[in-house]
Amino acid sequence: MSDAADMFDAGRIQVIEGLEAIRKRPGMYVGSTSQRGLHQMVFEALNPAVHEVLMRGAGSVDVTLTSDGGVRVADDGPGVPFESAGDAAAPGLEAQLTSLYAGWELGGHRGARRDLFGIGLSTVNALSSRLIAEVRREGVREIQEHARGVALTPPTPAGPATGSGTTLAFWPDADIFETTECSYDVLAECFRELAFLNRGLRMSLTDERPPGGAVTERFEGGVRDFVAFLETDVKGEPAHPDILDFEVEDPRMAGSVEVALRWCDSRDAVVRSFANSRRTHEGGEHVEGFRAGLAAALTAYARERRLLTAADPGLDADSVGEGLTAVVSVKLDRPEFHGATRTLLAGAEVRSCVEAAVRDHVGTWLERHPEQASAVVHRIVRGAGRD
């Protein structure tokens, strides 16, 4: 064996334990040490807060960008106890903050997951120069302070609590990140999406830094309201008055799909897709299923009304998508993705389930709304050059 080979023996293997691994390679856990990674820190802190609220069916999550460079995430849930209630219980808040993979589980609720690798709050703690956790529960307020992933004090009573909930205030470590300044505009857009995709969720963002700013979002119409919002940037009037929307639970993909859409007198198409409330910028199987189901429903209707002959090819996904504004959102127990960025959804069963749901519901809408259906299908057939 050569001298070079001798250099790589077991004695030279470095073992990094606990949260130090996150601090050593932060990009592996939040994607980047740029502002993008900084925003991912906010989402990691936001996930359990949104989960707590959605589990109760309604409520609010408030995020504040503080004047001293910190971020405060507060919810009005029941309050996550610092310690676990037993072996079968979910990890307590202290364990979630200080242990890898001690994070929360959805427990059957698929509302929102914008984390990257399921590590969650321990990532936020490890990459913050300072973090203060506050729990308001059963009339008592407790706090615990951390620095760079290490608890400085045990959970300490801090007087009576007004209401309930959990608050995390953290200051991203300037030794880790290229910048510690979050973008109010970027976060406001992301929070608006969360509110659209989770009906009844109230999201607020307050910027205490000059020049300041504040916004509160809540949408009872869900993705239906999302489509109406997206249409404000579309040139052209709606081709039909109704926004078509539906939601279907399908055990074959262990999840649900929610869709809203409307055509406008425009050549542009705007289709936003999401998996567990996370934007899938590259699309994926849910988008392919949506496009295929839409084309199948419109082709069947056009053939039935003899707008297409038996010899004509079916309408393709591109032609039926012209002038379309749509939101496709799937919420899955076990989402699968291509690549580590989680922006391209995988899963053949997702495609088949979404395709079937879209085909059935769009087909039913066309049958029940003949005037609107006629306006849509005639326009698409003319655009395809077959009329």
Rank of each mutant, 00 (worst) to 15 (best):
D3R: 10
E17C: 01
L19S: 12
E20Q: 10
E20C: 02
R25C: 02
M28W: 09
V53S: 08
P78Q: 11
F82H: 08
E94Q: 14
E105S: 08
G108I: 01
R114A: 13
S128P: 03
V135C: 01
V135N: 09
R141I: 00
R148I: 00
A161T: 02
G163F: 06
G163R: 03
L168E: 02
D175L: 09
V186S: 00
A195T: 07
L197P: 06
N198P: 15
R199Q: 13
E217P: 13
E217L: 14
R224C: 10
D233Q: 15
E237D: 14
E247N: 08
S256M: 04
S256C: 01
E258Y: 02
A260P: 10
D268R: 13
D268S: 03
R272Q: 15
S273K: 07
V287A: 07
R303Q: 14
R303Y: 09
L308F: 04
G314S: 03
D318L: 12
S319R: 08
A326T: 11
S329I: 02
S329M: 02
L332S: 04
F337H: 07
S352L: 07
C353F: 03
R359N: 10
V362L: 11
T364N: 08
T364G: 06
W365D: 09
R368D: 15
H369N: 15
D387T: 06
